[in-house]
């Protein structure tokens, strides 16, 4: 469903990323496109720019993509990934300053109603405020 904002979850841990995505699917449903990635290029804890790009590509759409990240390197790598794939993005891609699991559920809930990327991001970031 490309009329919803896509959600991408980027964690240092593949298990955390998958777990957060599972929670979104079970709590919010299948109508919101969610992609996730975790782990460095050798499979250890960390993040992988190529994997982040693949995840963004999987939910790439005109309404844009909201990215939830966990710690430092996940943010830096996600920013780098977005910058390097600017040509192929169909909409805006933004990082949300929100806790990864709660932010993903909130963002997906907002996205499921067809909300704009700005609204999705605001809802995710509102969680801790």
């Amino acid at each position: 469903m490309t009329d919803c904002v896509g959600i991408v979850i980027v964690s240092h841990s593949p298990d955390v990323a998958k777990g957060a995505a599972d929670m979104v699917r079970q709590m919010v449903g299948e109508e919101v496109r969610v992609a996730y990635c975790g782990g460095d290029p050798s499979g250890g804890l960390g993040t992988d720019v190529a994997a982040i790009q693949a995840a963004i590509r999987a939910v790439n759409g005109p309404k844009g993509v909201a990215v939830l990240v966990d710690l430092g390197g996940a943010e830096t790598n996600s920013e780098m990934a977005i910058e390097l794939m600017a040509d192929e993005l169909l909409g805006e891609v933004v990082l949300c300053d929100a806790p990864i699991v709660e932010g993903a559920v909130m963002a997906a809930t907002e996205a499921s109603g067809g909300a704009s990327l700005a609204a999705v991001r605001a809802t995710a970031e509102e969680f801790l405020s």
């Binding site: 079970q26 709590m27 919010v28 449903g29 559920v105 809930t109 499921s112 909300a115």
Partner: peptide, 14 residues
């Protein structure tokens, strides 16, 4: 709790 809250929100948005 969390899951019903999400359901209620989604329903209301419609």
């Amino acid at each position: 709790h969390a899951r019903p809250a999400v359901k209620l929100t989604k329903l209301a948005k419609g």
